[in-house]
């Protein structure tokens, strides 16, 4: 259980490095803006009160002008939940579909490897971006916060990253399901982007409304950067649900892939 993983993982390193630098720089930019947000705290809070309640939730309304609330809202709520989630769902969407579509899968499956090994090891190669992003990003963020003379509980930041892993695994599993259902990579990949974005929006717009229950279908409901960073209260049950769902989807994808005509 290693040759395929090793090969696939190695191929993910370069793209991940580019992404982490880009996201790190974005985080630094956001942090660089923070002092001016803090200075205008009064009027910003006043403006936030005028937003619909669902928006207020996604902006850590009570704590937006603290460094924790600002980071959670501007960096993690969007970059981590949405952008990194989309990145993973897109990458996972190509795992099987791209190989099947191009016919590359033939040269792999002509060797004495099982289909289960192929799909599981390819899936596990997504741990490369997940691990690197979660290891490097906190350094950018923490460094940036120190650089502007603010302070941040480093353990809370790490906790946030640890609790983002089940969420990111689930987005990868979502992509994987699409990747075995559709034989064309672009459909699986774009479908994944659309699906995750839709789920994110459903969760965002229903929060605090009578339709809040609807957001329960969205993975974003089970992981809140704001809860962890501002309140230091990670959603442990949510993390368990996400992990279980990620695993269940991986099993379902594997079963389908084992029986599929390629």
């Amino acid at each position: 259980m290693s040759d395929i993983l090793k090969y696939e993982a190695r191929r993910r390193i370069r793209g991940t490095m580019a992404l982490v630098v880009l996201l790190g720089l974005f985080a630094l930019l956001v942090i660089y803006i923070y002092p001016s947000v803090e200075a205008a705290a009064g009027s910003i809070e006043e403006w936030l009160q005028t937003l619909p309640s669902s928006f207020q939730e996604s902006f850590a309304i009570d704590a937006y002008t603290t460094i924790e609330g600002f980071l959670a809202s501007e960096v993690y709520q969007f970059v981590w939940l949405l952008l990194v989630g989309l990145y993973l769902v897109y990458m996972a969407g190509g795992i099987v579909a791209a190989d099947v579509e191009t016919g590359r899968i033939d040269l792999l499956l002509a060797t004495p490897v099982s289909r289960t090994r192929v799909i599981v090891e390819k899936y596990l190669s997504l741990l490369v971006p997940i691990a690197i992003l979660n290891l490097v990003m906190p350094l950018f963020v923490f460094g940036g916060v120190i650089a502007i003379g603010e302070s941040l509980a480093f353990t809370d930041l790490l906790l946030l990253h640890v609790f983002s892993i089940p969420y990111l695994l689930l987005t990868a599993s979502l992509g994987l399901v699409l990747s075995v259902v559709f034989n064309r990579a672009d459909i699986a990949q774009r479908g994944g982007l659309a699906l995750l974005f839709m789920l994110f929006v459903i969760d965002s717009v229903t929060t605090g409304t009578d339709f809040e229950w609807l957001g329960a279908i969205s993975p974003t409901r089970y992981f809140s950067p704001i809860d962890v960073l501002v309140d230091a209260e990670p959603d442990i049950a949510g993390a368990v649900i996400l992990l279980a769902a990620a695993f269940a989807l991986l099993i379902a994808s594997t079963e389908r892939f084992k029986r599929a005509d390629l």
Partner: peptide
């Protein structure tokens, strides 16, 4: 078994 596909596709 050795297999040479008709439409070769590589990474």
């Amino acid at each position: 078994i050795g297999y040479l596909p008709g439409e070769l596709s590589f990474d």
